[in-house]
Each structure stands twice: as C-alpha cells, then as structure tokens.
C-alpha cells in the first residue's frame, strides 16, 4: 500500500512542480482574476496553494491510472496478471 501511495503521490508531485513553474512564470499571481475577483492573498500564499491544487489534480490522474492498471478486469492479463 505504501508503494502504491508513493507511486501515485511522487510522480504527481513532480508534475505539479513543473506545472506550477510554467504557469507562474507566465502569469503573475497578482494579476490573477478568479471568478471575476482579484485574488487578495500574498504571492507566496498563491504559489503554495496553487501547488497543492495542481498536486491534487495530478495525483487524481495518477490514481486513476493506478486504478485502471491494477483494478480487476475480466480477462485482463496485461498488468497485475502474469503477462508482460
């Protein structure tokens, strides 16, 4: 279970970090408009929260992949079974 958790959280952590870097290089968080309102928070708060939002999304994608690969499926021999 620990390894499954790690293999979901770790790659998504890296992906979120890269995503955050790209987004906030291009966009100044002070110019962010969320639902029509300027965000009233410090840049470091937006960077940090932005990172966790991204991490949650990327982790969700990784978790879905993990579920699709390890979840039982009739006749599935590609992964989890004995096949390669």
């Amino acid at each position: 279970m620990l390894r499954l958790t790690i293999s979901i959280l770790w790659p998504s952590f890296i992906a979120a970090g890269i995503g955050l870097g790209i987004i906030f290089t291009l966009v100044d968080p002070m110019e962010l408009v969320v639902l029509g309102e300027h965000v009233r928070a410090s840049r470091s708060a937006i960077y940090s929260l932005g990172f966790f939002v991204l991490w949650a999304i990327t982790a969700m994608a990784a978790a879905m992949s993990a579920f699709l690969l390890t979840g039982k499926h009739p006749g599935d021999k590609t992964l989890g079974g004995e096949g390669d």
């Binding site: 279970m1 390894r3 499954l4 390890t70 039982k72 009739p74 006749g75 021999k77 989890g80 079974g81 004995e82």
Partner: peptide
Amino acid sequence: PPSRPPDDQEDALY
C-alpha cells in the same frame, strides 16, 4: 484458462 491475479495484488507486485 484465464489466470487470476492473487487476491491481494499488492502483495504479489511488491
């Protein structure tokens, strides 16, 4: 015959 993975796959994988 279709092979069934062990019940607790994680035990088998890791």
